[in-house]
Design a protein around this nucleic acid. Structure first.
Lengths: 195, 195
DNA sequence: AATAGAAACGGACTGCAGTCCGGTTATGCC
DNA sequence: GGCATAACCGGACTGCAGTCCGTTTCTATT
């Protein structure tokens, strides 16, 4: 009596020790990142903290960027859930324009909060595919609801681009622009784009 | 009878051997980058090719990013000259909207052409300060000419953001979007923003 | 329960970015 | 022209990302 069946064999099932090690590595990485800051965490340190060999880290996560992307994914998943099914105006229930503006503010703050981690994750594995494509999909949907005409997909990209980490960090750290002003400018941009 | 006077002593004058070495390093780096591609060029290789020690490279350019930024700067300078004083519609003489659209297309192509170098230059020294601030300044100026109302500085940033390398590479390499479509979408964005 | 085979493990190994310090060379002054 | 000083030079050294391969551990089958 098998406890879990494995029907479509495309993804070969993960071995028990592999799963255990993956969780140990993720927990160790999260611990070290919280404690020392992203940039001070080396792969050797994570391996030692997790009690595994270095080869294991690279086998499971491919690279340092991949590991950081996996750590980042923990919080991104929560945020995505809040967008898809949390309370309005971020979640469903509010009018589309209200949701869109709230979405931008929320993403802006999240990008600044996780700036170092997002940078360390680079474009490996999860980020440029999970976070970016989720956000793009959601903005496309809201632009559709608003009845915006034109190349919705690229308009969505254009609205998300000014919220990217390097740009926000330039504005906040180099030019000393306040968050309130950035939010207001983004609201203005959205209103101009959304007819 | 001194050949060159040095009036304001704030920047202490560069020693002759230092200048010679800097040119040798830049020439060697450019040669190697053209020949092997940016990512295959190591600092040791540049030092050997230029016939100097590794310490010299790091003294003059600070980091690999700094060296790549210096290499990049050679072509950026040419482009800036074309924008400021070249033939219209990129240079002065054309109506502002025409210049703005041409500027975007030009920057888009340049960013894709130099994508690897721009990425390697990161946000060191020149890029996030020369190229970005030059572009921002120019777009602010054109938006002013167009009579656009609002937070011109941040609107300029918002227009430039979708032209950044990571976003263009995602669109072109991952999603297979054509350059023509990206150009058209940017034109559309500009027209929506510029009232 | 024993076994065969495949997948995962781990630590020694490589290559590169960046640092450091003793030696060298240019410049300003006498 | 000679000398003192400060800047520059260069290569050996460190630490980390990523690789490789012999060894161990799991799982399916009988």
């Amino acid at each position: 009596m098998p406890i879990s069946l494995h029907l479509a064999d495309d993804p070969p099932p993960e071995r028990a020790d592999a799963a255990r090690n993956r969780h140990a590595v993720l927990a160790a990485a999260l611990r070290l990142v919280d404690h020392c800051g992203v940039d001070a965490v080396s792969m050797d340190a994570v391996a030692t903290e997790a009690g595994v060999g270095k080869g294991t880290l690279f086998r499971r996560f491919g690279s340092r960027q991949g590991l950081m992307a996996a750590v980042l994914n923990e919080s991104e998943t929560q945020w995505q859930a809040a967008v898809l099914s949390g309370p309005p105006p971020l979640g469903p229930g509010a009018p589309p324009m209200g949701r869109l503006l709230e979405f931008g503010h929320s993403r802006l703050h999240l990008n600044l909060t996780h700036a170092a981690l997002i940078r360390a994750a680079g474009r490996a594995g999860a980020r440029s595919y999970a976070a970016v494509s989720f956000s793009a999909m959601h903005v496309r949907y809201l632009l559709g609801e608003l009845g915006v005409r034109g190349d919705i997909a690229l308009l969505a990209t254009s609205l998300l681009a000014p919220l990217e980490v390097p740009i926000l960090e330039q504005q906040v750290n180099q030019e000393g622009i306040s968050l309130a002003r950035i939010e207001a400018a983004w609201d203005d941009l959205v209103r101009r784009v959304a007819v």
